[in-house]
Every structure is written in C-alpha cells, then in structure tokens.
C-alpha cells in the first residue's frame, strides 16, 4: 500500500521535478544465509539530480556497494531485492522485465565496477570488448560506424586508437581504468555508477582518472554516483554525500556541509577520524564495531557506539528526514526539527 502511494507520488514528482534523474524509494535488499536473512540494504531512499555527482560512503558492510549494484539489478543470489522502487527517467527499473533491464543497462544506467581493471577479458583485444558492448544494444550498425564511435569515446578518456588493438595486460592500471570508463559511457548513459573506481590506483593516476571521469560526465550531462570509503576522494569529487551505516542512509547533504558541519554523530566521528596534513600524532578513531546485520541492535543502528545516545535511541528506529533545506539526517537528536 505504502509503496503504491509512494510510487504514484513519485510519478508525479518525476514529471514535476525535471531536476531529478533518479529516485530511489525504500530499497530493501537481503542476503539469505544459512543463519538467517542479512538485511544489507534496509529501506534506503534518495534521489539524484540531473548532472549531479553524488557520493555514497560507508565502512565495509554498510551496504553501499549492494545499494549501487541493486540500482542496476546486478546483484545475485543469495542477495535478493525484496522491495522498493528505482525510478529512472519515469520508469521503475525494479519492475522492468529482464530483457528490458538488459537494454537499460549501459544505455540508461552504467556501472564502472570495483576493481574494474580486472573485469576486462584478458584474452580479448580491448577494441573487440568495446564493440561487444555496442553490439549488445544496437543491431545492424556497420563496423566502421561502431569503430568511429569507440574511437570518439576513447578520445574522451584520453586514450589513443592504439588501445583498440591491445590486450588488457599490455596496458597500465590507469589505462585499463580509462578503458572501463570508456565502456561505461559508450552508450551515453544518464546515470553512471562508479564503485571505488580508483581504489587500486596510485594517487597521481587516481587524480588523473577522476579528472577524466569528471570531464566526461560534464560533457555527457550525465549524473554520477561515486561509491567508496575514501573521504578525501569524495571531498574532491562529489557535490553531495550520502553516508551509509548498517544498511541505512543516515545522512545526506551537500559535500561542504557534510565535511564542515556534519549532523549525525556517526558522520561527526567519521569526519573527525580523517587524517589531514594539519595535525600530527592525534588520532581519533570511532570506538566500537560495526553492527552485525544478522542480529542488528534494536532502535538506532548506531546507538551502541554513539556518544550522544539517549534512552529512546535504544528502542525507536530513527528515519531519514529533511531537517533543513537539502540536509537529511536520520537521528533522534533532530526530532524537534531544531538544529
């Protein structure tokens, strides 16, 4: 019932609000294990604006990658999408048929996966792999036309035509990562999901690859969801940040606000724990451990580690609310809509 209402509201919304390209509503994903279901993504809702770069951050096990893969419907058993809606440009991706979804992937919403450089086929020339991507979506295009398109996209990511005839092992890590970006944008998707795209690269190359991704995204007018745990990368790249903890989004806001004025106690501790070049020999970790999603704590997921926990944090589950324009937080501290 609720989701039906929400979807109707959302249909109106996406017509009414052309600034939003993606609307995720109450996404639920569980891993079915022998010891019971693990709620990896537990009611995540957020939206992405046209041309926006959004970061999804969290520790390992917070559900950020599962969320990203679920948007593409790329998760596999034992993980199951158990509910929610993913509205992309007026259609709910979660209600598409398998074939419709296959067509939407790459064309409308593309993924640059984690460790993407290892996702290339080692025994196939790069050019051939790129041609495959196009052929899977567009029939009957001549080879010359397909190749012209590939060369154009390779030029966007600052790779020369020579790469077409190379095998992946002949390329450096940074070049392979660029090939993966090229593959992601071949069909000019509206949304690009980049899951830790540079985690295996050195800092210098990382910066070059991210700058390439940013430039391409601007030229395409696409939106990007950058998934990762590197807060430095987020600060440098995204416009807005969503912080995940224990399968939930706990805070969403503009990047500057998240870094300068975090609201959720977890975000505050996370920002405080980041090493900077300003201080030396002072380390502030976050005490305690990430919650077990098999037997999550009652009430707020963060209460066992929270320095500001109140008695009802142990019982009531907080929900993500917009407490001032563009600032969303899921914490009982902000219940009275005061800050």
């Amino acid at each position: 019932m609720v989701s039906e209402q929400q979807s109707k509201r959302n249909e109106k919304q996406s017509v009414a609000d052309p600034a939003r390209i993606l609307d995720v509503i109450n996404l639920q994903v569980s891993y079915h294990t022998l010891r019971g279901p693990v709620r990896a993504v537990n009611g995540v809702s957020f939206f992405l604006r046209v041309g926006e770069r959004m970061g999804l951050v969290g520790e390992s096990g917070s559900g950020k990658t599962t969320t990203a893969l679920s948007l593409m419907r790329l998760i596999q058993a034992p993980a199951v999408i158990e509910g929610g809606e993913v509205w992309l440009d007026g259609q709910d991706l979660l209600s598409l048929s398998e074939e419709e979804m296959r067509r939407a992937r790459s064309a409308d919403i593309a993924l640059i996966p984690q460790g993407a450089m290892n996702s290339l086929n080692p025994v196939m020339k790069v050019g051939e792999q790129l041609r495959d991507t196009i052929r899977a979506h567009i029939d009957g295009e001549s080879k010359a036309k397909v190749d012209a398109r590939i060369l154009e996209v390779l030029a966007w990511v600052e790779l020369g035509p020579r790469v077409m005839e190379s095998y992946p092992h002949e390329l450096s890590g940074g070049m392979k990562q660029r090939v993966c970006i090229a593959m992601g944008i071949l069909l000019r998707p509206k949304v690009i999901i980049a899951d830790e795209p540079t985690s295996a690269l050195d800092v210098v190359v990382q910066r070059q690859v991210m700058e390439t991704l940013g430039k391409v995204q601007k030229d395409l007018g696409a939106s990007v969801i950058l998934v990762g745990h590197d807060m430095g990368l987020m600060a440098q790249f995204v416009d807005r940040v969503g912080v995940m903890y224990g399968g939930k989004l706990i805070e969403v806001g503009p990047v500057r606000d998240i870094f300068k004025d975090p609201l959720h106690p977890y975000t505050q501790l996370l920002i405080g724990s980041l090493p900077t070049l300003k201080t030396k020999e002072i380390f502030k970790g976050i005490p305690g451990l990430t919650p077990s999603l098999l037997s999550p704590p009652p009430g707020c997921m963060f209460h066992p580690r929270c320095p500001k926990a109140m008695s009802h944090c142990f019982i009531d589950i907080p929900t993500l609310k917009e407490i001032k324009p563009d600032r969303w937080v899921s914490c009982h501290l902000y219940n009275g809509n005061t800050v």
Binding site: L171, S172, G173, G174, M175, D202, V203, V204, V205, Q206, R207, Q208, E211, D230, M231, G232, L233, M234, A235, Q236, F237, V255, R256, F259, K260, I271, L274, T276, L277
Partner: peptide, 29 residues
C-alpha cells in the same frame, strides 16, 4: 606531484592546489 595529488578530505582545498607542480605527466604505462 605526489603531495599535490593527495585527495584531502576538505572540499575547500582543491586537488592540485597544494604545490606548484600541477602538470599532467605522462601516464606510468
């Protein structure tokens, strides 16, 4: 170049503004 490429966790200090070496060098490969 290395220091300039550190992604600092501060949106107010932009990438590539910490030192005067801000070239796009040849890729390692």
């Amino acid at each position: 170049l290395l220091v300039n490429s550190i992604p600092l966790p501060d949106p107010d200090i932009r990438w590539g503004t910490t030192t005067d070496v801000n070239v796009t060098p040849v890729l390692a490969g």
